[in-house]
């Protein structure tokens, strides 16, 4: 009876954690057996997404990020987290007066959330950028664009990753 109550308690704790990690979008596997390490893992992931939030805030200086103009194309399901193709494009002609100065790709759950930070000179055409990225498990990817008039635009995309890129880091 007591053991059952203990199990219920840890279940509740895990649920509170997952509710807290709204931004992190953690998908916790709720199995029948709960171990301390699993809770520690959840807490570590929570801390990582916290780091992401701090980085996000520092980067945008808490200014408003409008979820328009920037488009992200990434597979909904990636078999292998080591190399996930990412394509980004930004609306607009990218002239000297109005262009993307900086493009930042952020991950919510990677141990180091900054994937890449890129600077562009006016490309005179619709800006398209492609790369291949590493992902530590299923998560959301943020792409933020800083325009030449210092406004932030962005887009977010979720990816399901079957095989995580860094198993060691998430333990």
């Amino acid at each position: 009876m007591n053991a059952k109550r203990q199990q219920l308690k840890s279940l509740l704790q895990l649920f509170t954690l997952s509710a807290l990690s709204r931004l992190g979008g953690l998908s916790l596997m709720v199995g029948s057996a709960f171990s301390v390490s699993k809770q520690a893992n959840a807490q570590a992931l929570e801390r990582e997404s916290e780091d992401f939030r701090v980085l996000f805030k520092n980067l945008t200086q808490s200014s408003r990020v409008t979820l328009e103009r920037v488009h992200v194309s990434i597979p909904r399901l990636a078999d292998n987290g080591h190399s996930v193709p990412l394509k980004v494009w930004v609306d607009g002609p990218q002239t000297v007066d109005d262009h993307v100065k900086r493009l930042v790709v952020l991950s919510e759950r990677n141990p180091r959330p900054m994937i890449s930070s890129l600077q562009f000179s006016p490309t005179q055409t619709r800006l398209e950028f492609s790369s291949r990225i590493r992902l530590n498990g299923s998560q959301r990817i943020w792409v933020l664009a800083l325009m030449s008039d210092d406004t932030w635009w962005g887009q977010v995309a979720s990816v399901e990753v079957t095989e995580s890129a860094c198993l060691d880091a998430s333990l």
Partner: peptide
């Protein structure tokens, strides 16, 4: 640009 560990 600057790349992080998140780049393949």
């Amino acid at each position: 640009g600057e790349l992080g560990t998140g780049t393949s």
